[in-house]
Computed example of a mutant assay.
Amino acid sequence: MSDSQYEPADAAPDEAALKRIAALRPEQLQAIDAVLMNACDGQWRKVASVVGRAMGCIPDRVPGIPDGFYAARVSGLVARGLLESQGDLSRMRYSEVRLTMKPAGSV
């Protein structure tokens, strides 16, 4: 069994964090997604690393928003096809992402 099977999934936000998350404006969410995308490239990167780099670069970052929220935004970017993933996205230390690779000849 791998180490990830013994470690619980990333913690869910507490009630106070959920209130701060709910108060985020659409433009703040877009800025978070943009910074997360900019923290990625064509190489596989640990989600925890992408989240950490992004959290340090978000303009007007709202304090008290946990890293698990940013990891969930990464999962959303994967779901939208903007990022590729491998590993268990519910555990940011055990998953990796990269920019979606376009097939040769696509525009």
Rank of each mutant, 00 (worst) to 15 (best):
A22R: 06
R73L: 13
A72F: 14
Y70K: 10
M55F: 07
P13R: 06
I65S: 06
A31H: 02
I21N: 01
P59Y: 12
N38Q: 15
Q28T: 08
D41R: 08
D67V: 07
P13E: 03
Q28C: 04
D41Y: 03
A34W: 03
M37C: 05
D33L: 09
P66K: 03
A54C: 11
P66W: 02
D67F: 03
F69C: 06
F69S: 01
A16Y: 07
A31V: 08
P59W: 06
P66T: 07
P59I: 13
A72C: 06
P26W: 09
K46H: 09
A39L: 06
C40L: 01
A17W: 04
P13D: 06
C57Y: 03
A34T: 14
C57V: 08
A16H: 11
A23V: 10
A22G: 13
E15L: 09
A48P: 02
V35S: 02
S49C: 03
C40K: 00
G52S: 11
Q28K: 09
A16P: 01
R20L: 15
V50I: 12
I65D: 04
D33F: 05
N38D: 14
L29Q: 15
G68M: 00
A17K: 02
D33E: 13
A17L: 10
P13L: 06
A23F: 12
D67L: 05
L24D: 04
P63G: 09
V47A: 04
Q30H: 14
R73E: 10
K19M: 10
G76D: 02
E27Y: 10
P26Q: 10
D33M: 11
D41A: 10
V50Y: 00
N38L: 07
P59K: 12
V50D: 00
V74K: 02
A71G: 15
R73N: 15
S75E: 12
